[in-house]
Design a protein around this nucleic acid. Structure first.
Length: 489
RNA sequence: UCCUGAGUAGCUCAGCCGGUUAGAGCAUCUGACUGUUAAUCAGAGGGUCGCUGGUUCGAGCCCAGCCUCAGGAGCCA
């Protein structure tokens, strides 16, 4: 792996990555490049891409230097290896190009059956061909940005002394109520063992109890934070909800930091800093990709009526997010703003705001973020009835120390809270909400032994990638999307 | 799961009031051209009109059921 590093100074006799080559100012030396043919124009010019960058390298095939047999095999999608001299380009689209001296077809690509053609494809078509969509400009850019964001998340936390804690994928607790779970079992699906009362006997299952895929690593994360101070998880999470939207997946990646001795304000500060850090990182390290995605989005928005187009382009939107503080207000303040808004008075909301206590609909969140404040918004102190059992209760007896970060075009990107550290209050709330305290004895132990103020949040990674890439459908920002009726690749 | 819309060539789409042999652009193939940038020009091939049933002299078009996809909603991250 390492001997073909693109950053190797010795460009001779080894494979050079196209990104590194396009960054060099020098010419007049020989390189070997390998990649996949994007187009072959005029029987003379190969646009070669190796995935290291969105930009293609132009290979010039001199007249009569290769036999017709070889030239015919240079088709869109074919894998080739080229050795030749790096020279200043005579054409206009690029600074340097490679004059091919030797050219080897590594893998043929039959153009009559290859689904990816040198033309525009719809995102829906590429979703059906998710195994090949990496070879397009758009998905190349998306997944390089995804990679950068992922790395930046780790760097952000590591710089601050957080411990990356691996929480289990298979769990026995279904207590959080974060959604429908996928069952994990080795029992015979046709004839499972039954108890005397006729129910499936999970005592005979692999783990000796009913188990499922995790819906959140938070509860385990809290256990870590109660000793290591600051931890974060970053791993796959599973929800068996029958959600068919552009913002939901059955398998998605979540980042869940959990911090001892943090209150809700510290929690918000950290979340805002994280989001700004990773966005800035991607802007710096994926400038070409984001530039391409910006143009892609502009092109796509040309199809829409003027009023539906964004005021800012993708770059401006990301920069704006870095340059401005997120707007922080309580649920109660948000309800007042919504209630007094012309939008509500003119009955333009499908669900009119009438009183305090109900959850906000996505149209309300969008109004606050996109129309009223026009920037990311952090809502805090929600009614306890619409939030999870573990959130710290305020003294008013009505609200909890919750916070949701709402992003334009995405909706809720972060959900978090200060946790209830008082055993009696926590148990009381669990009883009210019908959460079995005996099943979560290990969780409650953190409140029995050395409890302290602590807080945390969950960041939906794909929603972050959606925001940074400007893509419209969450299935286009994860390599192999898992959603209802969708598990092909 | 609910609402709305869609499914016609490899892809993106057109197809009138139900009526003759279902069209276009791109892609592909063949040929030309040799400094092209999604190259260009000329020609050619390419169809189980999502599936099943029904109405009709006749269905891509009308009706019913089913499947799939997209957008919106709910649930949420």
């Amino acid at each position: 792996m390492y001997f073909c590093s693109s950053y190797n100074n010795n460009l001779m006799s080894q494979r050079t990555k196209i990104k590194a080559l396009l960054q060099t100012e020098d010419t007049g030396f020989e390189v070997t490049v390998k990649g996949w043919v994007r187009t072959f124009r005029n029987n003379q010019f190969i646009a070669l891409n190796d995935g290291s960058t969105n930009n293609n390298l132009q290979i010039v095939v001199a007249l009569d230097s290769f036999d017709d047999e070889t030239l015919k095999r240079i088709t869109t999608g074919a894998a080739i290896s080229v050795t030749g001299e790096v020279v200043p380009s005579l054409g206009k689209g690029q600074k340097v190009e490679v004059k091919a001296k030797t050219l080897e077809i590594l893998g043929d690509c039959d153009p009559t059956t290859y689904p990816i053609q040198p033309k525009k494809h719809s995102l829906e078509f590429l979703r059906d061909n998710a195994h090949l969509r990496f070879r397009t400009n758009t998905f190349g850019a998306v997944f390089r940005v995804r990679n950068s964001l992922s790395f930046a998340v780790h760097q952000f936390f590591q710089e601050r002394g957080f411990v990356y804690l691996h929480t289990p994928v298979i769990t026995a607790s279904d207590a959080e109520g974060a959604g429908e779970t996928f069952r994990v079992t080795t029992l015979d699906p046709i004839k499972p063992p039954l108890t005397e009362t006729g129910e499936v006997d999970f005592k005979q299952d692999f783990f000796g109890k009913a188990t499922n895929l995790t819906v959140s690593g938070q509860l385990e994360g809290e256990l870590g934070a109660m000793a290591l101070s600051d931890i974060y998880t970053f791993g796959p999470t599973f929800r068996a909800e029958n959600s068919n939207t552009t913002r939901h997946l059955a398998e998605f990646w979540m980042i869940e930091p959990e911090m001892a001795f943090y209150n809700l304000n510290d929690n918000m500060d950290l979340a805002e800093a994280l989001l700004k850090y990773v966005i800035a990182y991607a802007l710096k390290h994926n400038a070409d990709d984001i530039e391409f995605l910006k143009d892609r989005l502009l092109e796509e928005e040309k199809q829409k009526p003027q009023q539906d187009r964004s005021e800012l382009n993708l770059l401006e939107k990301l920069q704006f997010c870095l340059d401005n503080d997120f707007e922080r207000l309580t649920y109660t303040e948000a309800i007042d703003i919504l209630k007094e808004s012309n939008h509500n008075k003119k009955k333009k909301f499908q669900y009119l705001i009438e009183g305090w206590g109900t959850d906000l609909q996505s149209e309300h969140e969008r109004y606050l973020v996109e129309k009223h404040f026009k920037k990311p918004v952090i809502l805090t102190d929600y009614p306890k009835e619409i939030k999870a059992f573990y959130m710290r209760q305020n003294d008013d007896g009505k609200t909890v120390r919750a916070m949701d970060i709402l992003f334009p075009g995405i909706g809720e990107i972060v959900g978090g809270s200060q946790r209830e550290e008082r055993l009696d209050k926590l148990e009381q709330r669990m009883n009210e909400m019908g959460i079995p305290t005996e099943e979560l004895w290990w969780y409650l132990d953190t409140r029995r032994f050395g409890a302290c103020e602590h807080a945390g949040f969950g960041l939906g990674f794909e929603r972050l990638v959606l925001f940074v890439t400007g893509m419209g459908n969450i299935r286009d920002v994860i390599p192999f999307p898992r959603a209802p009726k969708t598990a092909e690749f």
